[in-house]
Every structure is written in C-alpha cells, then in structure tokens.
C-alpha cells in the first residue's frame, strides 16, 4: 500500500515535470507510453476486473477515432462534441457485442473470438465507407503546432502530452474508485466464479454488460486522442488485430486486475520497444518486427514466471523486504 502510494506520487510528479525535462523525442515516447497506459486501463476494466477477455479492442479505438474525426473533418466541430459522440458510438457497439455474446452464452475463448470477428468485420466495413475515405484514409486538417486550442485539440506535443497525462491519471483514479464500489466487487465476484456470483444474487448479465460498455466508451476516448494526435486514420491500421494485441500487452505484463499494473506495464514496454529499435537500428539491421519479437518473448516470460504481472510481484517483494 505504501509502496503503491510512493510509486503513484513519484509518477505523478515526474509526469507533471516531464515536458520541461524531456527532449521532443522522449516526449513523443512518453505520449505513446501514456496512450497505451490509458487504453490498457480501459481494457483492464473489462478483462482485469470483470474477467471478460476482449481481443478486439482496436474496434473501439477505431470507432471513437472515426466518429470524432469525421465530425471534425465535415463540420469543423471539435472533440468537445466529438468525444461524447465517440463514446456513444462505442458504447452502443460494445453493448451490442456484449448483449449478443452474453445472451447466447458465448464464453471464454469463444467470446474472445467473437470480439475479434466484430473488429475485423468493422475494419473491412470501414475500408468500404467511401464517405470516410475508405481504405484511402481520413485526414484531419493540421493546425498550428505553436498555438494551443484545447477546444479543438489543435496544438503542439506539450499540449498533447498534458491531455493524455490528465486522461491517464483520470482513468487510473476511476479504476481505483471503481474497485471500491459495489459494482467493482460484483465484477470481481464474476471474474472469480460467475456461477457463485449468480447464486449470491449478483445480476451477472447486466453487470458484465456494464463492464463492456464502460470499457468500450473509455477506449473510444483513446481513439479520439489518437485521431487528433496523428491526424491520419487508416482502417487497416486503426482496426488492426495487431493493435488489439498490442493494447493488451501493458495490462497483462504490468498486472491484470490491478490499478497500477497497466500504467507500469506501458511505462515499461513502450520505452523498451523504442530502446530495442534504437539498438537494432544502431547495428545497421532492418528493424521491422524486432519490437514485437521482444514483446512476445517478454509476454511468455511474464506469463511463465510472474503470472500475476510485474507490479504485483514488485509490491510483494517490497512487502517482504520491509518485514525482514
């Protein structure tokens, strides 16, 4: 507990000060790290808390991104309206998938396959929606890098850094709070044993559905950030299976079901990936794929030796160290 508080405090301070200390490159790595921490937290609510495995979360990123970006490109209305729209679209999609999956008792791995199928279906669908650019992509008009326009989310890297920083702190606080609500306990009961939870009166269907909807809506906000930060959207990339997988690495490696796990995982993985790429590029070898190979090996090692994840392992070690 004390370790978690100390860690949280240190991270918070370092995070606030980062733009003054970091070079533009390091700042861009931090932005990506925090983005993965954010979407990892969103995924963690569904899988880590409620035990429902989704391997199609790129779908909610894509839906959120396209909803807000489409609104901005065609009407000039910024994310202040685009973000709620993105959340609504993703929540409806999540509710649809969750309702179908839970209503028809699609469980475990089959449920995961269902989420992949919907994500892939949506990807190909967006490839053919010509109004939104189809497979040719959707491009947002790029604003002034020097100015800061929070309403339309146009500005430079420092602004984007603070936006994703606040989003990540907020979702981490939300996760912490959720775990202490009645709903949070019901999720955990379902995760551990759905039948037992049902037997003691947890409304399993509704509670699971809430986890999917909340997770989908929050993930869509990550999509909105993605759209306005990168300014280009391709269905091929944003809905990719590989992105769905990459999004869940941080929470799994950091520690599924914990509040700080996804954050620790993302702050570990993204810089590690960058470092690997830099080293490999320094050796003069082509670096495509190296990062994923390293992540894959790391994932196996964590699943094997630290089944709880890195963060719970660290806290346990600290607790042990204090007792001695």
């Amino acid at each position: 507990m004390i370790a978690a508080r100390a860690m949280g405090g240190a991270l918070l301070l370092a995070g606030l000060a980062a733009p003054w200390l970091a070079s533009e490159y390091v700042l861009s790595v931090l932005i990506v790290s925090l983005w993965f921490a954010y979407v990892g937290q969103a995924w963690n609510i569904m899988m880590g808390f409620a035990g429902q495995l989704s391997l199609g979360h790129a779908m909610y990123v894509g839906l959120g991104a396209y909803a807000a970006a489409g609104l901005f490109v065609f009407t000039g209305i910024g994310p202040w309206l685009g973000a709620p729209l993105a959340v609504i679209v993703a929540v409806i999609a999540g509710a649809g998938i969750g309702w179908l999956g839970f209503r028809f008792q699609v469980k475990g791995v089959y449920f995961a396959l269902l989420t992949i199928a919907f994500a892939e279906f949506t990807r190909i669908l967006f490839d053919h929606i010509t109004v939104l650019g189809g497979s040719g992509g959707l491009f947002l008009p790029v604003g002034q890098r020097s100015g800061v326009d929070l309403i339309n989310l146009r500005g430079g890297p420092v602004m984007f850094y603070y936006v994703i920083f606040v989003m990540t702190v907020a979702i981490t606080a939300l996760s912490w709070a959720l775990l202490r609500t009645r709903l949070g306990y019901q999720w955990q009961a379902i995760r551990e044993d759905a039948e037992a939870a049902e037997a003691v009166g947890v409304p399993v269907f509704r509670t699971k559905l809430l986890a999917v909807m909340l997770s989908a809506g929050l993930t869509a906000l990550g999509g909105v950030f993605f759209a306005f930060y990168y300014n280009t959207l391709f269905p091929e990339q944003i809905f990719a299976k590989s992105r769905s997988i990459e999004m869940i690495l941080a929470p799994i490696i950091g520690g599924m079901g914990t509040v700080l796990g996804p954050l620790v995982g993302a702050l570990l993985l993204t810089p590690l990936g960058e470092l690997t790429m830099a080293v490999i590029a320094g050796l003069g070898v082509t670096n495509a794929g190296v990062r994923q190979v390293v992540f894959g090996v790391l994932l196996i090692l964590v699943l094997w030796f630290l089944p709880q994840g890195v963060w719970p392992w660290l806290t346990q070690r600290w607790a042990k160290g204090r007792r001695q």
């Binding site: 899988m47 495995l53 997988i245 799994i252 794929g289 994923q292 190979v293």
Partner: peptide, 22 residues
C-alpha cells in the same frame, strides 16, 4: 486458466510472424 494458455500462444504467434518479417 484458459485465457493464460490463449495469451501464451498469442505470444508465440507474435514471435513467429515477426521473425518471418525480420
């Protein structure tokens, strides 16, 4: 648990496909 086995093979898949890419 089932999902851990599933994720283990996801990791194997990542390694195989990206080694081919390299």
């Amino acid at each position: 648990p089932e999902h851990v086995q599933f994720l283990l093979l996801v990791a194997v898949a990542m390694i195989l496909a990206n080694t081919a890419l390299m």
